[in-house]
């Protein structure tokens, strides 16, 4: 069953407990960080009086996982997009491909890893336990649960308070949907959310091309063989004509 997080921005007070809980559970130094980096997987962006939690969206069809040549990133059944350092070759294509610019790199290391929110996959969510951040949130602004149940809950909240909420759940459909869902009372575009991604999952754009390649190869292969046959057949014909005309040319 796929788990997800529902982040209701109307409830968030910006206390930063989620960040500290996250840092604690990964054994990172507890510091207030304004940006994501290799030792900080979540942060709070302040837009007016609204705090926006930034973290890996754990996309339903993750661009990072689709571009990884060795499959070091994968979307797990539990919902988390999980990274295996022992597969990674360090090409950093995932960092380029991620529409939310989430994956960060251990630039200082000589055996660097890609680092990002793991949705506490190994320690918690793979066993059905909630993430450290959702457990730590004192006001329940980050809820952990099954994705379809959280979606239903979000729709219920919008339905009950249609004037309070923007009628959109960010992460329901954006770029094919994600396992981190946002509710807000301030339009998403004013909070630094990307609203131009469309609903098509990004890997589709690549797959549209990649899936056609076998046909292209087959067609081109036959075509080149045909061209080869024709151009070399011409030589044979020429030879034959030469034989026929040979006598008249040599006089």
């Amino acid at each position: 069953m796929s788990y997800a997080l529902l982040i209701d921005l109307t409830g968030c007070v910006g206390c930063g407990e989620c960040q500290r809980a996250c840092q604690r559970s990964h054994g990172f130094p507890e510091v207030e960080a304004k940006n994501l980096n290799d030792k900080n997987f979540t942060c709070l962006d302040q837009h007016g009086d609204v705090f926006v939690r930034r973290m890996c969206q754990h996309c339903e069809q993750p661009a990072c996982a689709s571009v990884c040549p060795v499959g070091a990133l994968e979307k797990t059944k539990a919902g988390a997009v999980n990274y295996s350092a022992d597969k990674c070759i360090g090409c950093r294509y995932c960092m380029l491909a991620c529409p939310y610019d989430i994956p960060k790199y251990e630039w200082a290391s000589n055996n660097p890893r890609v680092r990002k929110c793991t949705m506490c996959y190994d320690e918690r969510t793979s066993k059905g336990q909630p993430t450290a951040c959702s457990e730590a949130c004192p006001v329940g602004a980050t809820l952990f649960g099954k994705r379809d149940e959280l979606l239903a809950e979000a729709h219920k909240r919008i339905g009950e308070n249609p004037d309070k909420y923007v009628h959109r759940i960010y992460g329901e459909k954006e770029a094919g949907g994600a396992s981190v869902l946002y509710l807000t009372s301030v339009p998403f575009e004013k909070l630094g959310f990307k609203t131009t991604l469309g609903n098509e999952a990004l890997p589709e754009k690549t797959w549209n091309v990649l899936s056609k390649l076998p046909d292209v190869v087959a067609t081109a292969g036959v075509l080149f063989s045909a061209v080869y046959w024709i151009t070399h057949r011409r030589d044979e014909v020429r030879a034959f004509e030469q034989k026929m005309n040979g006598k008249s040319n040599v006089n």
């Binding site: 030879a239 030469q242 034989k243 005309n245 040979g246 006598k247 040319n249 040599v250």
Partner: peptide, 8 residues
């Protein structure tokens, strides 16, 4: 170039 014919 003109050459003799094959068989010549």
């Amino acid at each position: 170039v003109y050459l003799p014919m094959i068989g010549q």
